[in-house]
Design a protein around this nucleic acid. Sequence first.
DNA 1: CTTGAAATTGAAATCAAATTCAATATTATA
DNA 2: TATAATATTGAATTTGATTTCAATTTCAAG
Lengths: 237, 237
Amino acid sequence: MVAAASNQGGAKSVKGEKARAKLKSAALVVMEQLGYHKMRIVDVTREAGVASGLFYHYFKDLKTLTLEVLGDFIAHSLNIEDIERDVPKGDWYERILAHNTLVVQAYAERPGIMRSILQLADEDNGFSELLRANFIKQLGWLTSVMPKLFPAAGFSEQQAMLVAYTLAGAGETVLRDYYVNRESAIVSGSLAVEEMAELITVIYYRGLFLENPPAAKLRYTKKLQHMRMVEASQERD
Amino acid sequence: MVAAASNQGGAKSVKGEKARAKLKSAALVVMEQLGYHKMRIVDVTREAGVASGLFYHYFKDLKTLTLEVLGDFIAHSLNIEDIERDVPKGDWYERILAHNTLVVQAYAERPGIMRSILQLADEDNGFSELLRANFIKQLGWLTSVMPKLFPAAGFSEQQAMLVAYTLAGAGETVLRDYYVNRESAIVSGSLAVEEMAELITVIYYRGLFLENPPAAKLRYTKKLQHMRMVEASQERD
DNA sequence: CTTGAAATTGAAATCAAATTCAATATTATA
DNA sequence: TATAATATTGAATTTGATTTCAATTTCAAG
């Protein structure tokens, strides 16, 4: 869904291609450190070890470069299709987990890039639409089966989408505050990627199916199985 | 938690106070339209109908002004305490709903301001911390009762916080994409504030208690009661 | 080795926005 | 009404970055 650019921009020789690529990976480094908003053209050229004027030989402006760099990143790091094929058909838990693992991994490994993605999405409409289209595509498997999965509910495609969107949003906030902002109230010792992914998946699964995932699947979050209203002492009405 | 500013900055007379206030409300108007990042000093002074130089009589820079304006907004529009007192003690559903209604209302009425809040939080650490502190405070009622609510789980305060954080994050994404980005895949006809709040609350409640909210409470989302694994035809393991 | 296309340099020009400030206007008070 | 404090103006300046470009270097092909 994102252009992987092989002979884009101004490069007209092997040397040129290399320089262009060097600028792109320099931008990735700078963005990880500073984020998209604080990044300047000189930061990129300095990191790449070239003169500032060279930038314009290969890119129109910072936004163009960023769009390409982050597009590549998303295509490589958030490509759900690589993972989908390994998931047994009908195993909802594993499927949701696979999706979440991918995202958690990206946040854990490149918090600055994930932050930059959010920054760019806020500022550029095309990129924002691309991201959401990606998100919606990932939700597609769920929204298309939901009407069949819960026939008694009588969901329209639209309604299913809204519910799936809400469920899938859980996680986003905690990921941002855990990995990007390192909020001390939640960053305890440290959580492995698998633990975080499992946590988010369990919450998602409970919201979707009103049931815990199969106990055998859980490695870190067995405690959550005890979260039930029955055990709470609330007065029913 | 946010300064409500009565005699801040340069104002030294009633006239001055008025001019200062005029700049602040002009900033709110501009931010609703353009967002924080695109806002310029001249935009604010033009909207306020004053010369650009006057800005510096009252504020150090745009960020200072914005911090104050958005701080006020949060204090007025997202002040959970006003609502908390009306909620019967022990009625979890109503309590969660009250929290969510507040946020949904803010997004529905001032999408541009909510967007600006996210922008400023990304850029200013102090503001980001303030927001998160607010969020955590709102989660406090839940995290403090969770260990007692689910004694079998044996949650530490820290673990409870992580779970609550994840649950509470559901909603954020859908709200942003519904009200700020108006994503066509989810913006159908139009959803009333109460409907959106109820949807988010139901998902939250299900994730937390593994049970639907009392049916009598639900006005728009009865369909969701039929989302259950039992009705799905999955092979168990 | 020569040649021309492409790459590279970095200083100078440009640009958009922030910031200053001397001049002027307003207002409350004596 | 005079005065002093405060508010207000907007043109001039400063700032911090982007953008251009003439000169130079590199390198592959002949």
